[in-house]
Structure formats: C-alpha cells, structure tokens
Amino acid sequence: KQNVKAIASLGSMPNYLLTNNPNVKTLKDFTEKDRIAVPAAGVGFQSRTLQIETAKQFGDANYKKFDDISISLAHPDATAALIAGGSEINSHFSSPPFQYQELLNPNVHKVLSSYDILGGQASFNVLYTTQKFHDENPKTYKAFYAALAEAEQIIKADKPAAAKAYIRVEQSKLPLDLVEKIVQDPEIDFTIVPQRTFIYAEKLQALGVLKNKAASWKDYFFEEAHGGNGS
C-alpha cells in the first residue's frame, strides 16, 4: 500500500475535443465511423473526462459509449493526423500546445472543452508522491512546494518572460508567439491550487470506476495544499 496523494496542481488548462469532420458539431453527432484519438483510450484524462460528459448526456449505463471509437495515440501523432486529414482519425481530444496548433487549420473545429464538462477552470494535471516520502523528507517536501508556489508567481508576474524561459529550458522548437499565446490565454491559470478535481472523485466513484468514495478533495491532497481555495 503506497498511500499516494497529490502534492499540488500544475495549473488549470482546458482540453479541447477537436474534429475535422464538418458533420460533427456536438457529441451526439459522432458515429461508429468516427475515430477519436486520445493518449490512453478508456483510462486517461481525456477519456475519463469524455466519460463524465457521456454519462451526463446518454445516461450512466452508457458512459463508455465512445470508448469503442477511441484510439490510443500520442498527442503529436494525433495532431499530425488531424491537420493532414484523410486518415481514419478525424477527431482528437487534445491539450495545450497541440490544440492551438490544430485550430490554426481551417478544417479543424472545437466540439467541446473540458471546461464545458467540468463547469469552469479545472486542473489538468497534478504532482503526486507517496506518504512515506512526504513524511520522511519534510524539509525537501516543503522546499519543493515553496518552489512551485514561487514559480507560479514568477509566471504571473511576467508571462512573456515565462514563455521565453520555457523555450530556453525545454529547448523547444515551438514559435515564441505561439508559446506566448498559450501562456497569456485567459483560460489558462498556472496555479498550484487544485480546481474542480473533486468532480472526478465524485463522478467516477458514482460510475463504479473508483472503488472508494472521497469526502472532499483534501482526502487525496497532502495537507500543505489545504490552505488554498481548492476544490
């Protein structure tokens, strides 16, 4: 038993379900002929988010409705397929920066956003560790958490500088103007405070995906994160 818990959010970012099929305007327009690329079909962030919305629209018993037309594919490959067109993969539940690149193509449009599903800004990914590491390394843990909080403030204080730093550190080949566009997008919040994570805990437990029921988001985040206005 590892007793794994989350440390902090790495930021709130929307994930877009995109398609180059002009006939698909809503989730109900997808057919068995369509193929949706996701990083991990049936189990990854995008698939679980889609399952929550599917349960809402088609009933809990049908929450896996779109698993049959989902294909596991890395974001870069799915992006290339969607932009090029002509392949069986005509849709992609994407994420930054890929969705920004895809939407530059006039044949690609957004069907829905993860924010639509979750009701607003929501954490895209979180950091986590074991209870053992947390308890046995208090100074290291607190220093790491403080560094995350400082990084949040640095990014928010000067977003153009943060974009340049990202390209330098990652040795990224992405255009600077695209990275600046992403960093300055009002939908994106580089916050360490978890946002709307409890929706997953609640909905996926109700659907039978998660065995245990959490009482609140604080059940699966270490106490250092409890001071913020999390959810």
Rank of each mutant, 00 (worst) to 15 (best):
Gln101Trp: 06
Gln101Arg: 13
Gln101Asp: 08
Gln101Cys: 04
Glu102Ile: 03
Glu102His: 08
Glu102Leu: 05
Glu102Trp: 09
Glu102Arg: 03
Leu103Ser: 00
Leu103Phe: 02
Leu103Ala: 00
Leu104Ala: 15
Leu104Phe: 10
Asn105Ile: 00
Asn105Glu: 01
Asn105Phe: 00
Asn105Met: 00
Pro106Ala: 00
Pro106Arg: 03
Pro106Cys: 03
Pro106Tyr: 04
Pro106Phe: 06
Pro106Trp: 07
Asn107Tyr: 11
Asn107Glu: 08
His109Thr: 11
His109Asp: 07
His109Met: 10
Lys110Val: 12
Lys110Phe: 02
Val111Tyr: 03
Val111Met: 02
Val111Ile: 10
Val111His: 03
Val111Cys: 02
Leu112Gln: 07
Leu112Pro: 07
Leu112Ala: 10
Leu112Phe: 13
Ser113Glu: 02
Ser113Leu: 01
Ser113Cys: 04
Ser113Lys: 01
Ser114Gln: 07
Ser114Gly: 10
Ser114Pro: 08
Ser114Phe: 08
Tyr115Ser: 06
Tyr115Asp: 06
Tyr115Phe: 12
Tyr115Gln: 04
Tyr115Arg: 07
Tyr115Trp: 04
Asp116Glu: 05
Asp116Arg: 00
Asp116Trp: 00
Asp116Met: 00
Asp116Pro: 02
Ile117Val: 13
Leu118Trp: 09
Leu118Phe: 14
Leu118Ile: 05
Leu118Ser: 08
Leu118Val: 12
Gly119Met: 01
Gly119Gln: 00
Gly119Pro: 00
Gly120Ala: 09
Gly120Gln: 05
Gln121Thr: 10
Gln121Asn: 12
Ala122Ile: 05
Ala122Trp: 06
Ala122Val: 04
Ser123Gln: 05
Ser123Asn: 03
Ser123Arg: 04
Ser123Glu: 05
Phe124Asp: 15
Phe124Cys: 09
Asn125Leu: 14
Asn125Pro: 02
Asn125Ser: 13
Val126Glu: 15
Val126Pro: 01
Leu127Val: 12
Leu127His: 09
Leu127Cys: 14
Leu127Pro: 06
Tyr128Gly: 15
Tyr128Cys: 12
Tyr128Gln: 14
Thr129Arg: 05
Thr129Cys: 10
Thr129Tyr: 07
Thr129Asp: 09
Thr130Ile: 10
Thr130Tyr: 11
Thr130Gly: 14
Thr130Met: 14
Gln131Thr: 07
Gln131Ala: 07
Gln131His: 02
Gln131Phe: 07
Lys132Ala: 12
Lys132Asn: 10
Lys132Tyr: 12
Lys132Glu: 10
Phe133Ala: 08
Phe133Thr: 11
Phe133Glu: 09
Phe133Ile: 07
His134Ile: 14
His134Phe: 09
His134Glu: 11
His134Ala: 09
His134Pro: 06
Asp135Cys: 14
Asp135Trp: 13
Asp135Thr: 08
Asp135Gln: 15
Asp135Ala: 15
Asp135Asn: 12
